[in-house]
């Protein structure tokens, strides 16, 4: 299981799952929320599910659109 995702990788994964264009820079911006990016709760659930299946994110992890991609990045193993 590949657990090492760069911000750019994560941005690409989010774009693929949600159809919303996202850059690696936006991923690391602490002031930007998923709401700001246009990623809604359903989209976020798809992203989380993929990270749980393929990238070792905990089954119990939860994230809401008012949170930031940086918080998502922190959920990835080895990045606490």
């Amino acid at each position: 299981m590949d657990t090492r995702l760069s911000p750019d990788d994560l941005a690409a994964l989010i774009s693929r799952c949600t159809g919303v264009p996202v850059t690696g820079e936006q991923i690391t911006d602490p002031d930007r929320t998923f709401d700001d990016l246009g990623v809604d709760s359903l989209g976020l659930m798809g992203v989380l599910a993929e990270l749980q299946r393929e990238h070792g994110v905990s089954k119990n992890a939860d994230l809401r659109p008012h949170q930031s991609p940086r918080e998502l990045l922190a959920l990835l193993p080895g990045r606490a």
Partner: peptide
């Protein structure tokens, strides 16, 4: 269709 809507 917006890309965000196309995927869903």
């Amino acid at each position: 269709v917006e890309p965000r809507i196309t995927v869903q």
